[in-house]
Every structure is written in structure tokens, then in C-alpha cells.
């Protein structure tokens, strides 16, 4: 593993995943990252077989899934979480039809052994763009959570904002599969947000807490992987979990 590029890339992905994850948690959608990660598995499998970028492969499959989810949500008003559950299992099933055995582990838990400078730059640019877009829609999406009618009267185009929100989720999960694979993406959006909720009193603290803690979890995870030799994806999730446990102690102390 190239330590420094891996560290920079993971810190950016973890940060933006934690930030967006705080919004997803407030909309009770934190677990959606999991099914979408599973949905990306056929794309990751194709990318590993034909040698193109795993994020691109994941993104294509997630976008198709998200457009489907969005259309069904608009037409049926079924909860987005329930619709997501409808589509993700097919992703897992399809990927295992043609995923070669030697590619299974990288697809499931991520692989950061070969990172080029181009990839790091691409991740920095994409993560930053997702962060700024999410920042613009953040308070409006919270108002939608408080009351959709109220938000619409305040001039918020809820359909448009939901679509932007879902596009951000698709991009973050596509980036996330690089470091934790298609199996564990829920963790990098959900755990930092839960930790931040334990430690925050205001929305600003909560949102930026997700960013900082998501980044910190990835930095500690990559460092632990470098020292111990365990897979980076597993180490990142365990680091995030450890920070969460510390927050429980701190929450009890306050």
C-alpha cells in the first residue's frame, strides 16, 4: 500500500461520507448506504474483470438503481428506504453470477493497494464538489424533514432537492467502495454521523462533526492497516466503531 496517497484519498472520502451521512441519518436513511453499496457490486465486478475504475463501475450501477428508486418514490410515495430494499438484493445476486473468485474479496471489502496520483486528484476534486453541493442543500433538506408542506411553501423544490441529494449519495457510495468495498459502505456514512450526534448540540456541530470524525476514522484506519497489515477497509470500519464507543463514554460523562 502506498501510505500517503491512500491516507489522503481515504481522509477525503471519509470526510465527505461522514458529512453527507449526517444528513442521511437525519432523514433516517443512514442504512441506505449499505443496499446501494451492494447494488454497486455488479459494477465493481465488471470493473475488476475489464480493468476500468471501480468507482466508475459502481457509479453506473448505483445511478440506474437510484433513478429507479426516485421514479418509484415519486409515483408511489412509498418510503425511499423500502424501495431501496426492493432493488439492492438483485445487485448482489447478479454480481455473484459472474464475479471471479479471486476478485471477490477486493469487491466486497475494498482494495487500496494500487492508487495512482490521478486517482487521488480525482477523489479530492469529487469529494470537494460533493461537499459543497451537500452544504448548499443541507438546511433545506432538514426543513423538508421537519415538514414537507412548510418547505414547499418556503419555495423549496422538494423533488429537485431530493434528486440532488440522491445524486450526492450515489457519488459518495461510488467513492466509498474504493476504500471499504461494496459490503461495508453503510458504515462510513452511518457511524461518523451517529458519533457526531452523540457529541453535538447544534446542527453546525453535528454536520461538521460528521466530516471531521469520518475523516479521522479513515486516517486512523489506514494507519492501523499500515502497521498491522489487516485490510484497510476492515481497519477503517473498526476505527470508526472505536471512535463511536469513545463518544458513548463522553456522552455519558456530560
Amino acid at each position: 500500500m502506498d501510505f500517503l496517497p491512500a491516507l489522503i484519498m481515504s481522509a477525503f472520502i471519509g470526510g465527505v461520507a461522514g458529512y453527507l451521512g449526517s444528513l442521511m441519518l437525519s432523514k433516517r436513511m443512514a442504512l441506505v448506504g449499505g443496499p446501494l453499496g451492494h447494488l454497486s457490486l455488479p459494477g465493481i465486478a465488471l470493473a475488476l474483470i475489464y480493468g476500468f475504475d471501480v468507482s466508475l463501475g459502481a457509479f453506473l450501477f448505483i445511478v440506474v438503481g437510484i433513478i429507479f428508486i426516485w421514479l418509484v418514490e415519486v409515483r408511489t410515495k412509498l418510503p425511499m428506504e423500502a424501495i431501496t430494499a426492493l432493488v439492492f438484493a438483485s445487485g448482489v445476486a447478479t454480481s455473484f453470477v459472474f464475479l471471479p473468485e479471486d476478485k471477490t474479496v477486493p469487491a466486497l471489502i475494498g482494495d487500496i493497494s494500487q492508487i495512482t496520483p490521478d486517482i487521488v486528484v480525482m477523489v479530492i476534486v469529487l469529494s470537494s464538489a460533493i461537499f459543497f453541493v451537500t452544504k448548499r442543500i443541507y438546511s433545506k433538506m432538514i426543513l423538508v424533514s421537519i415538514s414537507e408542506d412548510l418547505a414547499r411553501v418556503e419555495g423549496i423544490d422538494t423533488k429537485k432537492f431530493n434528486f440532488i441529494y440522491l445524486a450526492c449519495i450515489a457519488l459518495v457510495i461510488s467513492l466509498g467502495v474504493r476504500i471499504v468495498g461494496g459490503l461495508m459502505t453503510a458504515a462510513i456514512v452511518a457511524i461518523p454521523a451517529c458519533t457526531s450526534k452523540n457529541l453535538s448540540k447544534t446542527l453546525t456541530q453535528y454536520a461538521y462533526g460528521g466530516l471531521v470524525l469520518g475523516s479521522l476514522g479513515c486516517i486512523l484506519g489506514i494507519a492501523a492497516a499500515e502497521v498491522t497489515g489487516v485490510s484497510a477497509g476492515s481497519a477503517i470500519i473498526m476505527a470508526n466503531t472505536a471512535i463511536f464507543l469513545v463518544s458513548l463514554v463522553l456522552k455519558r460523562a456530560t
Binding site: I146, V153, E154
Partner: peptide, 28 residues
């Protein structure tokens, strides 16, 4: 230039992220 206040039961008051009243006013 219209303001609308839905009935209280249609306001989500639980299960929201930490949000101070000042931040809620800053939405406007």
C-alpha cells in the same frame, strides 16, 4: 408573500438531528 403553519401534529419534532432554535430561524 405567504406564510403557512401546518397543524402541530404534522411538524416533525422528534428524531431530528441536533438543531438549535436559532439555527431553525436562520433557515429563513
Amino acid at each position: 408573500d405567504i406564510s403557512y403553519l401546518p397543524p402541530q401534529e404534522l411538524w416533525e419534532r422528534r428524531g431530528l438531528p441536533p438543531l438549535s432554535i436559532e439555527e431553525f430561524f436562520r433557515f429563513k
